[in-house]
């Protein structure tokens, strides 16, 4: 692989990043080739070989970029992209990232469903009273008011829990890319 092929492959693999980021990364590698061929008198092929796989480099760059985005704003989309990019780093990450990720999403999802269901019980009781007035029980009415209260508290709790969990998960991703970063192939 010569310089042109290497940079071409790298650029193709970086396609998920914004153009500015891509350019910046490519410039670094162009400089690397330039110094290597000019000063050290190495061939482009030697340099490309020592650099390793452009795809692996691009994966690491992409994961680092999304993780940084998730740091700045922990929106669901950013966290999802960061998790996905980290999973892509290798089999090891697939196991230790995807498992906790699915578990955490399930917990958050279940919490929200419960909160919404509790809160929905009052309107549902009222709708029932309108459609089948003969089935209406005051007990249902008061119980649903109580459930509304529980649901509201649960929703507030979930709001905090969701924030906490997403922050924690982003930190876990960081720890992860540090562990697996590098793609050092000479193990």
């Amino acid at each position: 692989m010569n310089k042109r092929q290497f940079l071409h492959k790298l650029q193709a693999a970086l396609n998920k990043l914004p153009e500015k980021e891509q350019k910046d990364i490519l410039l670094d590698f162009e400089e690397h080739f330039q110094v290597g061929t000019g000063e050290e008198g190495k061939t482009e092929e030697e340099i490309a070989e020592a650099l390793g796989s452009p795809q692996q480099i691009a994966k690491e760059m992409t994961a680092a970029y999304y993780l940084e985005q998730a740091d700045q704003s922990s929106s669901a989309g950013n966290i999802f992209r960061a998790a996905w990019a980290t999973v892509g780093l290798g089999f090891f990450n697939l196991v230790i990232v995807l498992g906790p990720f699915i578990a955490l999403i399930s917990v958050v999802f279940a919490g929200w469903v419960a909160a919404v269901a509790f809160m929905a019980s009052l309107p549902l009781v009222l709708i029932e009273a309108v459609i089948y007035p003969e089935l209406f029980l005051w007990f249902d009415f008061f119980l649903s008011i109580a459930l509304l209260g529980v649901g509201l508290l649960l929703a507030i709790g979930m709001l905090y829990a969701t924030r906490l969990i997403s922050k924690g998960f982003v930190r876990y991703l960081h720890f992860n890319t540090k562990l697996v970063k590098g793609g050092l192939n000479h193990a």
């Binding site: 690397h32 650099l51 796989s53 760059m61 050092l184 000479h186």
Partner: peptide, 21 residues
């Protein structure tokens, strides 16, 4: 960059490209 990569790979076997990320 090149200098950093060279110094490290003189001592340890690495994929040199991983220094840049």
């Amino acid at each position: 960059g090149y200098e950093l990569v060279q110094k490290i790979s003189e001592q340890i076997a690495i994929s040199e490209g991983s220094v840049y990320p």
